[in-house]
Structures are given as C-alpha cells and as structure tokens.
Design a protein around this nucleic acid. Structure first.
Length: 282
DNA sequence: CACCATGTTCCTTG
DNA sequence: CCAAGGAACATGGT
C-alpha cells in the first residue's frame, strides 16, 4: 500500500480528523512495531496527550502532540508494507492485525499492519538518514546526477536508496524509469546528463500524479461498507480505480507497453521485481 | 507445496 | 571503513 503518494494522501485525510483529539487510552497489541520504544513508555507519553499536527517526511508520518504535562510529544509512524491507519467508532470490531489502538475522546485511532513491518515509535533516529524530499526544491537534477554517478549499481536500485532521494519505492522507481525511457539495469554511473534530466522530471511527475489521483493502491477498506465505522479514505465506492489506470509497467509483465505495445518484462534486481519495456527502455 | 508481495534494517562478504 | 547483496522480519494471496 504505501509509497510516498499513499502516505501523503493518508496524512492529508487523517490530519484534520485527529487534530485536537485527546488520547484517553493506549493499547499495544504488537510491541514489535514500537521498537525500540516500550509499551510502558508509549502509554506514559500518549495517555492524556492531544494531537496537534501531522506531516509526512518520505514514507514516514510525523505526529506532534501536546502531552498531559504540557510538553511536546513526537510520534513517528511508518506503514511498512501493509500498514494502515484509520479512525473507527469505539464499538466497531478491531481488525485482526491491529498493532496499536488509541482510545480517543470520541472513537478510536487504529494502526493496523498485517505483516507488522511498520513502526509506531517515539524514536526518530530513522529520519536522520533520509535524503531530500523529491517534490521539494532541495531535490535537484544536479543532486540526482551527482549521487547517481557515485555508484556502479543499476540506476533502478539506486532510486530505492532513501539517502539519495527519500520516498521513491519499488513501484514508482519502475514507473519513473519507464516514463524517462531509461533501462533499469543501466549502471548509475553511465546515465547521461540528458537521461538524468528526464529521470528527475519523471520522478516528480509520477509522484505528483499519484498524489493527485487521490489513491493508487487500494487504500480503502473495501468490502466493509457503510456503518462499520471504518474511516474511509482514497476513492469512494464506485469511483474510478486510479491505481489500475495510472501504473504503466508495475506488475504488468506480459502486457503491452502503453507507448509501443511491446510486451512488458519483469526482472529481479537485488531480490526485488523491476518492470520495464524492453523496446522503449533499451 | 511453491512463489510472490508497496519497506527497512541487519549481517555477511569482498 | 565502504559498497553491495542477501536474509530477516510476518502474514497472506495466488
């Protein structure tokens, strides 16, 4: 579910819903996601605290709260591969893999994560290693070129390095390279200045369009219809599926390229799938 | 049973 | 010390 655009969409939807809400109780059902914070530490910091703001940094969510004692509390969230965050009525059934549940003054906040790779922690050290935000001015084509040239790894693998640019994941790395017409296996060292320019534009366009689309991956809580109290974000029931429409190569092996109709291919780079058009991205 | 999965962090190897 | 690659984490879908 989550790459940068999905996290951005979540933050935008969640921020106004949690602002001003007070936490009455904290239930940690899977302590692993707090690491290295302990359940006792989280309970002490959050009980009685009030949400003030929510921002995104790369794929992280930055929650700022005002603690019971008046001090600021900073909470760092990450959805991992399968994480979700939403509000629901206090009477609604908890999802099977609810990792952390915050009882609010009205209803509850749920961090649910099937695989428990996500984070919900007071430890902010993970942010220190992040590179520039791809949609901000700090991310320039010159920076991208300089960083790419430093390595002989493939350009696709380099894009996943969060210290080079923060927030590009496995889906949008393939999408950006397709858009820029660059072969994913090309050594980062061999990328030309013209290619860097195209790639820089493509990264930004692909991410921006995904955010604009409102939802790419199925972030909705499909099936659970109205009345179960699930906070529902992303597309509405019956709305177009932006995910299926927007992705041009990811998970489309064997299907025709949207530009040239050649058959999309899949390859594995450092253990992860890459999708590309062998003709457009020669 | 096999293989695949949107992410990050460790550990090993060179 | 660094770069690079692979395993681990944990659960579910096909």
């Amino acid at each position: 579910m989550p790459e940068l655009p999905e996290v951005e969409i979540l933050a935008r939807h969640l921020a106004p819903l949690i602002a001003g809400r007070t936490i009455r109780g904290v239930a940690v059902r899977r302590a692993r996601v707090l690491r290295p914070t302990t359940p006792a530490e989280l309970e002490r910091a959050l009980t009685g605290a009030r949400f003030e703001s929510l921002e995104r940094r790369a794929k992280f969510l930055l929650f700022r709260l005002r603690g019971r004692n008046g001090r600021e509390v900073s909470l760092l969230g990450h959805l991992g591969m399968t994480g979700r965050m939403f509000l629901q009525r206090a009477a609604a059934p908890l999802p099977k893999h609810a990792a952390v549940v915050l009882q609010l003054d009205r209803g509850r906040f749920v961090f649910e994560d099937t695989r428990y790779f996500g984070r919900f922690t007071l430890d902010w050290r993970a942010l220190k290693q992040l590179g520039p935000e791809p949609l901000e001015e700090e991310f320039t084509a010159a920076h991208l070129e300089r960083e790419l040239r430093r390595s002989k790894q493939s350009v696709k693998v380099r894009l996943l390095d969060q210290s080079l640019v923060a927030g590009v994941g496995n889906i949008y790395a393939s999408e950006a390279l397709w858009r820029a017409r660059i072969a994913p296996a090309l050594s980062a060292r061999r990328v030309t200045t013209a290619q860097v320019q195209r790639l820089w534009r493509a990264i930004r366009a692909v991410l921006r369009e995904a955010i604009r689309g409102g939802s790419t991956l199925p972030l909705n809580f499909g099936g659970s219809g109205a009345g179960d109290g699930l906070f529902y974000f992303g597309r509405a029931e019956g709305a177009p599926d932006f995910y299926a429409e927007r992705l041009r190569v990811y998970d489309r092996a064997g299907k025709p390229c949207a530009r040239c109709r050649a058959s999309i291919r899949r390859l594995v780079q450092t253990g992860r799938s890459t999708f590309f058009c062998p003709r457009c991205q020669a």
